[in-house]
């Protein structure tokens, strides 16, 4: 395994009291593998991603273990952490317009990353920057380097951000819902781009998304998150074919189907997103669950393992 996350917890200190955003998450990513991290907004998937790269702010308390090639990320000294970020793990954010600095040229924003992580001289860095733009499919790179983010279209901005994240050839790319801000056709292009880059560069990919369709299309393994926890994880094909957590099943029923499920009736998930400031005693999904039993209310189901599947649901056998 290149990345192992064990019992990751993140508590945000807010003026209204603590918020348990991530509450004991376990994940594993093999070298060159693609893991989908899926869930509703507020499920803790983005926070998990940022906690892995230690990008959370001072109001967050992070505990647990994040192991990168057997090295504890949460205990890394600043110098080592800087080399990890960018050089070994690249990160792509959700909103390219917000993530790119509006007052610096794209060229500079690529260049500073190369300057931090490579030995290349000015000329070499420029050549590499052009190569990167070409790699992510931005034509006329020479002119583009001197432009500012607002001079790019939405899709081009996301490509530019991916180019920056890839600048020093990381072994793992963390992508935080990189397609939500984009039009559907562009979404598809960006996903294809990520898959192509993954294959060409042999890097691993953690793809955070709220879109099961994206997971089906791109990922090998999937972890479904709800209320700061992983409720089910396993290979995409078998999880989608036979979900073993009531929430996964509800998610799949709420998603427009393809293939065998095409034309099936869509069933929306009733109720509201769980409150993270007041964690439930039992299963967090219980209030919205249509197959819950009395135990779900009082005691939290523990994670069970069956082959390459993991799940935490009392109703598993009845799904």
């Amino acid at each position: 395994m290149s990345l192992v996350v064990r019992d990751l917890r993140v508590v945000f200190d807010t003026p209204k009291g603590p918020v348990w955003a991530v509450d004991g998450v376990d994940l594993e990513v093999a070298p060159g593998a693609v893991l989908g991290l899926v869930g509703e907004s507020g499920s803790g998937k983005s926070v998990t991603l940022r906690a892995i790269a230690r990008l959370l702010h001072a109001n967050a308390t992070v505990s647990g273990e994040v192991l990168w090639e057997d090295e504890d990320v949460l205990a890394m000294p600043p110098d080592r952490l800087r080399r990890l970020r960018g050089a070994e793990i690249g990160i792509v954010f959700q909103e390219p317009m917000a993530a790119l600095n509006p007052v610096l040229t794209i060229g500079l924003q690529i260049d500073e990353s190369l300057e931090a992580h490579t030995e290349l001289d000015t000329k070499g860095r420029r050549a590499r920057a052009l190569e990167l733009l070409d790699l992510v499919g931005i034509a006329a790179g020479g002119a583009r380097l001197g432009q500012y983010p607002h001079e790019f279209s939405g899709g081009m901005r996301q490509r530019a951000m991916i180019a920056i994240a890839l600048a020093s050839s990381p072994k793992l790319l963390l992508a935080d819902d990189p397609t939500t801000a984009l039009d559907v056709t562009i979404q598809d292009q960006i996903l294809r781009l990520l898959l192509r880059l993954k294959a060409e560069l042999g890097m691993g990919l953690v793809l955070v998304t709220h879109d099961l369709g994206v997971v089906a299309q791109t990922c090998e393994r999937v972890a479904v998150m709800y209320a700061g926890r992983v409720c089910e994880a396993g290979p995409v094909a078998s999880v989608f074919a036979s979900p073993r957590h009531a929430y996964t099943q509800a998610l799949l029923r709420a998603m427009p189907g393809e293939g065998a499920r095409a034309g099936a009736k869509l069933v929306p998930i009733p109720g509201q997103a769980p409150r993270l400031d007041r964690p439930a005693q039992g299963c967090a999904f219980q209030p919205r669950c249509t197959v819950s039993e009395s135990a779900c209310e009082t005691r939290r189901p523990s994670m069970e393992t069956d082959g390459d599947r993991r799940f935490a649901c009392y109703a598993e056998a009845r799904l």
Binding site: L55, R85, A87, L100, N101, A165
Partner: peptide, 16 residues
């Protein structure tokens, strides 16, 4: 701001 987080995510020095 997000772009400051992104700059940190690139592994830049705090001073930069």
């Amino acid at each position: 701001a997000e772009f400051v987080d992104f700059a940190r995510a690139k592994g830049l020095r705090a001073r930069l």
